[in-house]
Write a protein that binds this DNA or RNA. Structure first.
Lengths: 158, 158
DNA sequence: CCCCTTATTGCGAATGGGTCGCAATAGCAT
DNA sequence: ATGCTATTGCGACCCATTCGCAATAAGGGG
C-alpha cells in the first residue's frame, strides 16, 4: 500500500519502449494497460487493473484488459502470482528477488527474500527433481498477528 | 497411486461413526458422500466426488455434495488441499504426514514427507512469524520429467 | 408408533472471474 | 492513402460453486 512504486514507474518507460519491439501493434489500450500495471507497481488483481484502466481510458473493455494481461505476460513484460484462494495478482516484469506470503485470515501479503525459500527449493530439486515455483505461487498460511489473535492453539483446526 | 485406499476405507467406518456425533442429522446422502471421500482416498476434486456419489445414489444433487463437503470439513472429517491452478482436492481426515507437489505442466501430484518443508516452515516462523500452511496449499512447480522434457534452460521464462 | 421441530435436500437460478466469437476498428508498412 | 490483419468492444458463454426456497425427512419426546 505504500509507494515503492516510484521505482517501477521509472522503469515503466523502459517497458513501454519494449512494447514496440515485442508486440505487432501498439494500441492506446495496450499502452495504457501496461502503464497502469507499472504504475500500480505489483500485487494488483486483474479486476483492479480493469477499473484503473477504465478510469484512464474509459472506452477500454474488460476483455481487452484480460487479453492484454495475457499478451503482455507472454512477451515477458509483466507476470502474475497466484495468491492462494485469492485471484491472481499482476506485477511489472523484473519483480525478482522476493516471494510472497499470503495470510489466509487477513489477506495481507508480505514479501520475503527468496533466499529464505532457496533451501527448500534445493531440497525439492535434490530429492524429487521438482522445481518449485514460488515466483508464481505464493506461500499460504497465517501471519504473525492473526496467529496471535487466534491464541496460539494449533492452526490445524482452522 | 493405486490402492493404499484400503487403509482409508478401513478408517472410514470410524469416520462414519463420528458422523452421528458430529452432525445433527445423519442422512443417506451425507453418509454416502463421506463414504465416497473415504473410498476414493484423497486427491479427488469435488466434481469427481459429485459423479461418484451420483453413481452410488443417483438422486443426490450436486449442491448437496458441495454443501456436505463443507459441512464435513467443518467438523473435521475431511479436508481439502488447493492445487495451484487446479480445483481443490478433498481427502478424508488424518491424511497427515505429507505435503503435495503439483506439476504445472503435466498436472501430476506427488507427495512429499512434510519433514522436507519443516526447515522452511521454521525459517518463516522465526523470521516473519508466519505459519506456512502446506497442509492445505500445495507447492506448485515443474516435475522432474517435465523440466527434463523442456530442456534444462531456466524455468523462469515460463 | 406418531408428531413436531428444524436440519437437510433438490431444484434451478445466480454468481463471478474470466474466455470466446465475431464484426468493426485501427496500426503501420508500403 | 491503401490494404492487410492485429486488435478491439460487445455480449454471449463457461464452469465450478453457491444460494434461495419450498418440500422432505431425521430423530427426540410423548
Amino acid at each position: 500500500m505504500k509507494h515503492d512504486s516510484a521505482a517501477h514507474a521509472a522503469r515503466s518507460d523502459d517497458l513501454i519502449d519494449h512494447l514496440k519491439e515485442l508486440t505487432p501493434r501498439v494500441t492506446p489500450q495496450r499502452r495504457v494497460i501496461l502503464q497502469t500495471v507499472c504504475d500500480l507497481g505489483g500485487h494488483v488483481s486483474a479486476e483492479e487493473i480493469v477499473s484503473e484502466v477504465a478510469r484512464r481510458l474509459p472506452s477500454v473493455s474488460p476483455s481487452t484488459v484480460y487479453r492484454n494481461l495475457r499478451a503482455l505476460e507472454s512477451v515477458g513484460l509483466i507476470s502474475h502470482v497466484h495468491m492462494g484462494h485469492a485471484v491472481a495478482q499482476y506485477q511489472p516484469a523484473g519483480h525478482g528477488g522476493h516471494h510472497h506470503l499470503v495470510c489466509g485470515s487477513c489477506g495481507r501479503i508480505q514479501k520475503i527474500d527468496n533466499r529464505i525459500t532457496s533451501g527448500l527449493r534445493r531440497s525439492l530439486l535434490a530429492s524429487e527433481g521438482f522445481e518449485a515455483d514460488f515466483e508464481h505461487f505464493a506461500i499460504y498460511g497465517t501471519c504473525a498477528e492473526c496467529a496471535d489473535r487466534k491464541g496460539n492453539g494449533p492452526p490445524n483446526r482452522g
